[in-house]
Design a protein around this nucleic acid. Sequence first.
DNA 1: CGGTCTCTTGACGGAGTTCAAAGCTAGTGG
DNA 2: CCACTAGCTTTGAACTCCGTCAAGAGACCG
Lengths: 208, 208
Amino acid sequence: MLRDDLDSLRAKRNIYMEPIHRLVKHLERFVPIQESDVALLQKHIGSVRVSKKEHLVEPLQPCTDHYFVVEGCLRMYFFNEKGDEQTVQFAIENWWITDHAAFMQGGDSLFCIQAVEQSTLLTLNRQVQEELLQKIPSMERYFRIIYQRAYAAAQYRMRVRQDYSGEDIYLSFKKSYPDFVDRVPQYMLASYLGITPEYLSAVKKRHA
Amino acid sequence: MLRDDLDSLRAKRNIYMEPIHRLVKHLERFVPIQESDVALLQKHIGSVRVSKKEHLVEPLQPCTDHYFVVEGCLRMYFFNEKGDEQTVQFAIENWWITDHAAFMQGGDSLFCIQAVEQSTLLTLNRQVQEELLQKIPSMERYFRIIYQRAYAAAQYRMRVRQDYSGEDIYLSFKKSYPDFVDRVPQYMLASYLGITPEYLSAVKKRHA
DNA sequence: CGGTCTCTTGACGGAGTTCAAAGCTAGTGG
DNA sequence: CCACTAGCTTTGAACTCCGTCAAGAGACCG
């Protein structure tokens, strides 16, 4: 009760909760967190503000960080053989994003990670993540759950991609995330759905 | 040295290593495993032999188990709107497979899981997995790593799907897994690659 | 306002699907 | 161990969804 009041008071005064506490709140949805853990997180995790279109990762450079979106929206994309951008993932509030292959193995990234909107992020570099995993058993459990869910979502997305036409994929995406379709530029959404902006335009018109 | 000799002796005599030890060997590639842990695994994990085409999971039934392939090959698939089978994943030796969404949430599965070949499996049901995760910290770490890798692979696969034509997807898959393309029926592989068996046939002919 | 992104429109083309029928192959029972 | 059959693969012709290209209309930002 008191806690809720405090939160709403903060919200009304437009005083942001410290970014790190947004993460802690999210962690607590999955695992128990000790006070001492919070201190450790606070000590090691960096917070950063990026403006729209700013890049966090460029291709052929190492991708050493794992990003947690406190506020805003990021996307991961690459340039296909024809030179067009292809979005493979979006990340909004409370999502993690990184090029996992590069992050794990320390090699160069094949992707770009870019802010779609002005965003507030937490950055967790590989050594720090490894250290936290070792020191805090709850973190190991937390990331196990996060990756399991991410993988389940990827399985589901793969299924939708195989099952439906471009038109149906858009409609089903819109049904699942009605607000999000207007939050990002059309050409990004189109490449995420696996169709061209032109065709998405035609589909939208058909279902206006 | 002694250990290796013993292994090769077993192999020569065609005495299979106990399935559970195949798992332990795999676990040890990622995390340290105690003798006491092995006993716990042995006590809780079941082993089962399935024949070709046998189903482990049917759609609209709960999917309570996580399967580890000791020997053989499984696949996960579903029936699309037209009634055709669509393969979403294969699992060969040392791979885990399950419908993660159903496994996690306890709901009904949207997929079938079926043996492509006669196979030896370990089965880990949800309660047991949860118990092992709680009791053995190494298991929490192990599955975190496994899921992270699986997710990275899914990201990569998604990228390939967006970037390349059906023809190129087949060629790149064949390059990555030259033996596997002939290990499964063509129609399964075709649906996994996202093309029709007829078109795969044409592609293969073109590159004969 | 001007310039640069972004979105729309329409004509055309091609990669891949659909359908049907004819070859193969492998598994099964006699 | 052969013969039969069901299931798998190949072939080819017609068709369609969606990509490509180019040009114009909005929309956003300095």
